[in-house]
Computed example of a mutant assay.
Amino acid sequence: MTLPYPPPLLRVLLADDHGIVREGLKMVMHQASELIGSVDEAATGEQVLALLAAHGADVLVLDLGMPGVAGSGWVRALRERHPALHIMVLTANTDERSRLAILEAGADEYLAKTGSSRELMAAIERLQNGHDKQPARAQSTHTPAPAETLTRREQQVLALAAQGATAAQIGQALHISPLTARKHRENLMRKLALHSTAELVAYAVRLGLPSA
């Protein structure tokens, strides 16, 4: 009886702007699976494109919040340029609208960073075995995305903050006091579970808002 050849080892590209996250993911992959071969690392969207052009990859594990990655449009362009690449998004953003937009743009998987390493490795094995990617469809019971809970004023503040405007500048643009602008910003960050200006800007980019 002739045994089948083992599948080729996967070339993985880890794309996250936090070095400690990349190191942890690399350790998990090598410990949890014999399918993983080489693992390259990128901290910006530009580095992702350069490494794919230079070395290629089978699987891209992508954080949407890192510099140079502009939401679904960036993913769509990447899919058109690398049609055979398995794109796995690993993100802190769990709202349904963003998930659907990214999957429809061409990503194969959309995983939350709050999940377990087992989920990540199971997704990689699904792709390796040729199983279908995650379906880009909404849940039967609609739960409002966090962005849908923002008031019109909070949406305006989000758009301005994403462009780097200070509380004073936001207040001037919206004809409100800096204190009120700061309060709106605090409220929207609480609703969106954001904890820093960098997270706020990244979230705005994922929604398609212009940033500085």
Rank of each mutant, 00 (worst) to 15 (best):
E96F: 14
T114K: 07
Y110D: 07
L120D: 01
K113Q: 06
T94Y: 13
D95L: 11
V89E: 08
L90V: 07
L90E: 01
L103N: 03
T91N: 04
L111V: 09
N93A: 08
T94N: 14
S116G: 09
T114Y: 04
N93F: 10
I102Y: 03
T91P: 02
S116F: 10
L103C: 04
Y110C: 12
E109K: 01
S117R: 07
L103D: 01
L100F: 12
T91M: 05
V89W: 13
S117F: 12
A112H: 11
T91C: 06
D95W: 06
D108F: 06
E96H: 15
T91V: 05
A112W: 11
S98A: 10
L120K: 00
A107H: 04
I102P: 00
S117Y: 13
L103V: 08
R118H: 14
R99H: 12
D108C: 07
A101K: 08
D108M: 04
A107P: 04
G106F: 05
K113M: 05
L103E: 02
K113F: 03
L111M: 08
R97A: 15
S98P: 01
A101T: 08
K113G: 03
R97T: 15
E119F: 01
T114L: 06
Y110G: 08
N93P: 00
K113S: 05
A105T: 01
M121K: 00
A92M: 14
S116A: 14
T91G: 02
E96N: 12
Y110I: 10
M121D: 00
A92G: 13
R97Q: 10
G106C: 05
T94G: 13
Y110N: 06
E104H: 12
L111A: 07
L120C: 01
R97G: 12
L90A: 02
I102Q: 06
A92R: 12
S117A: 15
R97S: 14
E96L: 15
A105V: 00
V89I: 14
A107V: 04
L103W: 02
L111K: 04
V89H: 07
R118P: 05
A107L: 07
A92P: 00
S116Y: 07
A92T: 09
E104S: 10
L111P: 02
R99S: 10
D108I: 04
L120M: 03
A107Q: 05
N93C: 14
M121W: 02
E96G: 15
L120A: 00
L103H: 03
D108P: 02
D95P: 06
S116P: 04
A105R: 00
R118Y: 14
A105C: 02
E119A: 09
R97P: 04
S116Q: 15
D108Y: 03
R118T: 14
L103P: 01
N93L: 09
S98K: 03
L120F: 01
E104F: 09
T94D: 12
S117E: 05
L90H: 08
R99G: 15
R99D: 10
L103Q: 01
L103Y: 04
V89Q: 07
S98E: 06
L120H: 00
L111S: 03
L103M: 09
L111H: 02
A112D: 13
A92V: 10
E96Y: 14
A101H: 09
E119S: 04
A112P: 11
G115K: 13
T91D: 10
L120S: 00
G106S: 12
R97W: 11
E119Q: 07
A107D: 06
